[in-house]
């Protein structure tokens, strides 16, 4: 049963790390907008021209 001396603290530290990560994300405002981010991933406005794989392939082909 000596193994418990290591395993229990390890379990607590891992769980605690998750808790700290959550508290950080809460403080950093990660949950302030639950609608916007899912749309932001579809926004291509930040890309350079011809930088998507499809466009790059087209350029190569021509």
């Amino acid at each position: 049963m000596e193994v418990l001396i290591y395993l229990i603290p390890v379990a607590l530290v891992l769980g605690g790390a998750g808790l700290v990560a959550f508290l950080w994300s809460l403080r950093a405002g990660q949950y302030d907008d639950m609608e916007g981010p899912k749309w932001r991933i579809l926004d291509d406005g930040d890309l350079q021209e011809n930088s998507t794989p499809v466009e790059a392939a087209k350029r190569k082909a021509s």
């Binding site: 302030d32 907008d33 639950m34 609608e35 916007g36």
Partner: peptide, 11 residues
């Protein structure tokens, strides 16, 4: 001069 502009879509 505008450094950051962010829209909150839920509020």
């Amino acid at each position: 001069g505008v450094e950051k502009a962010r829209v909150n879509l839920s509020s």
